[in-house]
């Protein structure tokens, strides 16, 4: 109940943002919503089940390209976004069937390779996808302000759906099963948990919203190309945000998204050539000093027991 109230209140406050009429702020808020979606998506498989997936960029890019290609063929906007999500889910089921029996490092790298394979496919099919030249999307007839507001609300709606889904899953049999798998997969199997099935469903959840986010992103920026939407950083940032906020928690990804975007905006813009290194510094500091996320700080202050003790020697 508490989680729902926080979610509704937070979304409600954000939804008032367009009243300020500041397009720059709106662009940032749209980015935050997108980051929340990507981080929470990763959290389903990486945080709950403990499978370090690097496939997020694959889902994102696949959603972007599916929607862009369909729009080029005259499919209406919202239908094409839905198709982007659907394509990502189907892809996750196919890939998941092949790589979810791998564990640890093997799974991490295999999921990374699937992104490269998708990128190669797009690169080698210029007739459909524009290949390395990229793809233009239909321009929408709107004023700048309308455009900003429309995409802000679209992204916010998907972020809300994604968060709602996370709240439901955390409380559900699926969430419980994924936590069992994260703790000890063999023991979970012996207890009757159909690990393979639950992992595949978890992987599907991590795909659907990322795919839709990619689709909306494509429409938002009008132009996509493989290095942009299949960027490895799209796979890495969600992981960083979740680590920032706290692994396997409901609101950790949101906190992580705000922190990361704030950092990107105010620090990296100043030092453009070393922005990758700046992200590197955050990651290293995070792993070494805050392995349980910033939420653990407040929890420690309140004197509550830390759940994830023993991660550090």
């Amino acid at each position: 109940m508490k989680n729902w109230l926080i979610l509704l209140a937070g979304t409600g406050v954000l939804a008032l943002l367009p009243l300020l009429g500041d397009n720059y702020l709106m662009r940032l808020a749209t980015m935050v919503a997108m980051y929340v979606i990507l981080a929470q998506s990763w959290n389903f498989i990486g945080g709950l089940a403990g499978y370090p997936s690097f496939a997020t960029a694959g889902f994102f890019g696949l959603g972007a390209y599916t929607s862009a290609v369909l729009q080029g063929m005259g499919v209406p906007l919202f239908a094409s976004w839905g198709a982007g999500g659907l394509a990502a889910v189907i892809f996750s089921a196919l890939v998941g069937g092949a790589i979810l029996h791998l564990r640890g490092h093997y799974f991490a790298i295999a999921s990374l390779v699937t992104v490269e394979v998708l990128r190669e496919i797009v690169n080698t099919t210029p007739d459909i996808t524009g290949g390395g030249m990229g793809l233009n999307l239909p321009i929408m007839r709107m004023t700048v302000a309308e455009h900003a507001t429309f995409f802000f609300y679209s992204m916010l709606a998907v972020a809300f759906a994604c968060m709602a889904c996370a709240i439901v899953v955390h409380k559900s049999k699926l969430g419980f099963a994924l936590r069992c798998i994260q703790q000890n997969e063999d023991a979970a199997n012996i207890l009757g948990v159909n690990a393979y099935l639950y992992k595949t469903i978890g992987f599907g959840f991590s795909a659907v919203f990322a795919g839709i986010a990619g689709a909306i992103y494509a429409s938002w920026v009008h132009y996509i190309e493989p290095p942009d939407v299949f960027d490895v950083l799209i796979s890495v940032k969600p992981l960083v945000m979740v680590l920032l906020g706290g692994l396997g928690t409901i609101f950790g990804p949101v906190i992580g998204a705000f922190i990361l975007l704030t950092f990107e905006e105010f620090v990296w813009r100043t030092f453009l050539t070393v922005h990758a290194a700046a992200l590197g510094v955050i990651i290293v500091a995070l792993v070494l000093f805050l392995p349980n996320g910033v939420l653990s700080l407040t929890r420690e202050k309140l004197g509550l027991r830390r759940r994830a003790a023993g991660e550090k020697r």
Binding site: G46, G50, P52, G104, H105, A108, L288, P291, K312, R313
Partner: peptide, 8 residues
């Protein structure tokens, strides 16, 4: 410092 931590 984190050698005993999980793969991730």
């Amino acid at each position: 410092r984190v050698i005993a931590a999980p793969v991730l």
